[in-house]
């Protein structure tokens, strides 16, 4: 599932951007070191293959609904982590630009959730561990399924955490989790089943592909794992810190959670850190969730809000004048520019 710009604060979106950009830089460096010039076109067309694959549906047994492959794990197994990660990231970039899936700020989150997690977390830690050195058929199957489940669970968990730490949505954390995790269990089962089936087809038809893909990368992949795990830890720490900062007071989310569960689920931030952060927030205000003028105001009531009628009148007038200006501008420049066919 795709994260969306509108649900993110710049702090969270920016953190995830940094983590994803770092992973792209690392993976690019690994590939450049490998100097396997076959990989460039291969990754490109496999990215396009993912699009094509997502067009084709199948009926999920017993439910009557249909599903399709999302493919991150399949690519990791075929290409190795670095190449697979770049391929997935490129697909997400195209989706962000043209299919407007999510948006540009959310791109960092999406690359993290759908790229870093399958390629650098699940693939080395779950898939490699389960299949071991000399995998049997059964082990491959179990490994693939476990990896698919882990990918989807971690991915959706990341979506929840990113949404919650941004605090734009008021959906309580617990409810959000209960809503999203079971759905992704089902999606994970489907993804695992399809991945196993496609891989066994490839194994029958051209076994050398699976060797070349997975076999080229492991040494490089292994050495990269610690680096990326480091990244992951950093990202989580930064995200944690920034989310304290972004929603570091009992706001709608925590208030709602507290109301739903009867007690505060999220631990109240430490006074010292909290104080420092709120000072920072006052100073910068740019990334602030809302301004902090009144200190600890009433629960659920933001310190600053639109003052009724003036706000609405202003908004409508602004919108109208923008539209007028745009219309005039367009008429003005039409003479100079050949209209688009």
């Amino acid at each position: 599932m795709h994260m969306a710009d509108a649900l993110l604060t710049p702090a969270v979106g920016g953190t995830m951007w940094v983590a994803s950009a770092g992973a792209i830089a690392c993976s690019s460096a690994v590939l450049r070191r490998e100097r396997d010039d076959r990989k460039a076109p291969l990754m490109g067309v496999l990215g396009a293959f993912l699009f094509a694959a997502q067009m084709i549906n199948f009926t999920i047994p017993g439910t009557g609904s249909s599903g399709h492959l999302s493919g991150g794990l399949l690519l990791a197994i075929l290409l190795g982590p670095s190449a697979a990660f770049l391929t997935i990231a490129s697909v997400l970039v195209v989706q962000a630009f043209f299919f407007a899936d999510g948006g540009l700020l959310a791109l960092g989150c999406n690359i993290f959730n759908l790229g870093i997690i399958p390629a650098f977390v699940v693939f080395p830690l779950v898939y490699r561990t389960v299949i071991g050195r000399d995998p049997s058929r059964a082990r491959l199957g179990v490994g693939t399924m476990a990896a698919a489940l882990a990918t989807l669970q971690l991915g959706s968990l990341a979506v929840v955490l990113e949404t919650a730490s941004s605090g734009i949505s008021s959906l309580p954390l617990a409810d959000f989790l209960m809503l999203i995790q079971p759905i992704h269990l089902a999606i994970g089962l489907v993804e695992g089943g399809v991945t196993i089936a496609v891989l066994s087809f490839v194994r029958k038809a051209r076994p050398e592909l699976l060797q070349s893909g997975g076999g080229v990368d492991p040494s490089a992949g292994r050495s990269l794992v610690p680096v990326l795990l480091g990244f992951l830890v950093c990202a989580v720490v930064i995200a944690g810190g920034l989310s304290l900062y972004a929603s570091g007071k009992p706001d709608g989310l925590e208030w709602a959670v507290a109301k739903v569960s009867g007690k505060a689920v999220l631990p109240a931030p430490e006074q010292g850190v909290h104080g420092a952060l709120s000072w920072l927030q006052q100073k910068t205000a740019w990334f602030a969730d809302y301004r902090f003028k009144g200190g600890k105001t009433e629960i659920g009531a933001p310190a600053k809000l639109d003052t009724g009628v003036t706000g609405i009148v202003g908004a409508v007038l602004t919108l109208l004048s923008i539209l007028c200006a745009a219309f005039l501008l367009r008429k003005g420049s039409r003479g100079a520019v050949a209209p688009e066919a």
């Binding site: 291969l42 009926t59 047994p61 089936a197 496609v198």
Partner: peptide, 21 residues
């Protein structure tokens, strides 16, 4: 349009893609 026909269709597409690469 069940899983097995889906997988072999996707598998074929994957192989053709690979050859194209």
């Amino acid at each position: 349009l069940n899983l097995s026909s889906y997988a072999s269709l996707l598998g074929h597409l994957l192989l053709r893609t690979w050859q194209r690469a």
